[in-house]
Write a protein that binds this DNA or RNA. Sequence first.
DNA 1: CATGAATGAGTATTCATTCAT
DNA 2: GATGAATGAATACTCATTCAT
Lengths: 190, 190, 190, 190
Amino acid sequence: MNGAQGRPLRADAARNRARLLDVATEVFTARGVGTPTEEIARAAGVGVGTLFRHFPTKEALLEAVMVRRLEAIAARTAELTIDTEPATAFFDAFRLVIDQSAGKNEFTRALAAAGVDAHESLRESSTVIRTQLAELLAGAQRAGAVRPELGVPELMALLVGTTASMDQLGADPAARERIFDVVFDGLRPQ
Amino acid sequence: MNGAQGRPLRADAARNRARLLDVATEVFTARGVGTPTEEIARAAGVGVGTLFRHFPTKEALLEAVMVRRLEAIAARTAELTIDTEPATAFFDAFRLVIDQSAGKNEFTRALAAAGVDAHESLRESSTVIRTQLAELLAGAQRAGAVRPELGVPELMALLVGTTASMDQLGADPAARERIFDVVFDGLRPQ
Amino acid sequence: MNGAQGRPLRADAARNRARLLDVATEVFTARGVGTPTEEIARAAGVGVGTLFRHFPTKEALLEAVMVRRLEAIAARTAELTIDTEPATAFFDAFRLVIDQSAGKNEFTRALAAAGVDAHESLRESSTVIRTQLAELLAGAQRAGAVRPELGVPELMALLVGTTASMDQLGADPAARERIFDVVFDGLRPQ
Amino acid sequence: MNGAQGRPLRADAARNRARLLDVATEVFTARGVGTPTEEIARAAGVGVGTLFRHFPTKEALLEAVMVRRLEAIAARTAELTIDTEPATAFFDAFRLVIDQSAGKNEFTRALAAAGVDAHESLRESSTVIRTQLAELLAGAQRAGAVRPELGVPELMALLVGTTASMDQLGADPAARERIFDVVFDGLRPQ
DNA sequence: CATGAATGAGTATTCATTCAT
DNA sequence: GATGAATGAATACTCATTCAT
């Protein structure tokens, strides 16, 4: 997808760009967005110059990482939306976002904030997701599977919050499932 | 609690220390923990030297701020524990933690992380809260007001997560209440 | 002089500031304004941090250097203006500016440009000089010692140009005097 | 002149070289010699690689630009030297150099410095001009149109200085003429 | 030959921490 | 004790130059 790519990158350049994105995702997640650019470049096996050639700013790199993540989520959410029963689709999508965001709290917050103050590219991809979520939410509500009084802002907030809960909890799958139980049961009309 | 203070501080020194803590709480909350120490010193009306005399490290200052916050929460939670009906006490305490932590997500995460990797003083005060929460949780579960399968880790995770949801949501009180509805209903035995 | 000095600097701070200005003047002159700040700090015997504490920007340092230079010229020009015969005062001042500016072409150009686009402090001090030169020029013209059709812009241009000539020429005193002969004779009504 | 070119350039290579020189002249003049090489390459419609193939160093490019400028001046000065009355030839050449150098002070200084420390190619072309100017000066002095005590160094200095004056003055043609009046009258025997 | 991606040394600036006043 | 000046390691970003495609 990748937005408006001026000219197609040369093979090696594309490889470097992809590698930088992968590494940056990993490093930002593991050690925080404060990690020096040089570290990321080194981890990607390129010089700083290369990093800055592909992403003119550290912020731009962070943005690109988030856009990729958002686009991945949007793509998988789109699959769910098609021929799945509305309630199932909604809860599956909720899980999907949480799982994709796990360990990436800083990103998720940026994600949510995107609707308010982020740059164009981010806003663009987050708008897509926001729209998808709005549809899923409406569908689930029409099907009587989700409290009717909830709006998209509350849904976003719960997504962010649940992600934070999961990050806090660590890897224990049973405990994670108990969190999902609480949130999902709470989402249903009482 | 203040730990083991060798000799009691002179009056002005004590005043400076308190003022620094107040200001640091405010500034770290409003502008993030990245705010330069000099800014905090200036806002407190003292020189950096004084700041570093009271808190040998920026991290130590941050820690002290969090300890104070934890102690305040513990104190108010203790009040709730005494002669209140268990279920009410539990949900009131939950709200209390959320309200005290609102807008201080960075702190809350540090708080929660405390059980794992923070310094002694932090662990100490967070242990107090953890114990209180454990008691409140057990009480509410005995009273049949909270799902019995939940443990303290899940409770902590939900506290952190709900704080994140609230931060994300902003000030709208009705929406905040809807989040509480979801979480509290989800906490109840189904 | 020195503009609005908030509080008087501590003795050592003042010494450092002065030393930095001296060294910067020398180094910028000898090796150009492209010289790294770190070099200047080292030459002044202080750390970079100190340099940036006194001058928040490299540009600010350059500006301060120029202001000092301008103020010195203004002060000495003021002495000349008092009880000296107009024609003599004018030509002495001309020499003075040239001598003060020798080897500092980059500065002189900045000086002249100040009237157009420099920062407040620079504009301020250059306005003083400009005014003094205007008076000196008018006096010399009234005394019939300088071509009446010349204005301050032309005078400024000639000052800059003569400085450039001198820089180009090097130290040979006799040759320098020949340049002065050409310019001064050319300035006189023909 | 182009120096000793091993093999004649292919047509397109020659075109690129010429285009790079044109563009570099323009860009260095308009935005200073600090302009990145990449900018120049882009403006010339070639890649950086091509630029560096033709000029192994940025400095070499700058040098080539100056050589071309010098050669142009030399050529036009040569025309003047032939069948023109000596005094007229001298003053016309003076004007010519000034007009060609206008707005290119950085170059002119480099030009003048060439006699002292520049590379061979520059020295070569500046020697030509220097010789021409020496002849023109001698002719004008023999004709009694210029002060006899002036030498070529002073003439060079005055050329550089007058260029600086003009740069400083800007476009006002009347004011420029007044500067010429001062310098030319000053050059004449008094 | 041309291209433009990669390189990495170099530069201005910030900020936690120390120490002379 | 308090002050704030000094320190210098750390960091984002630039740009001349090289080299794989």
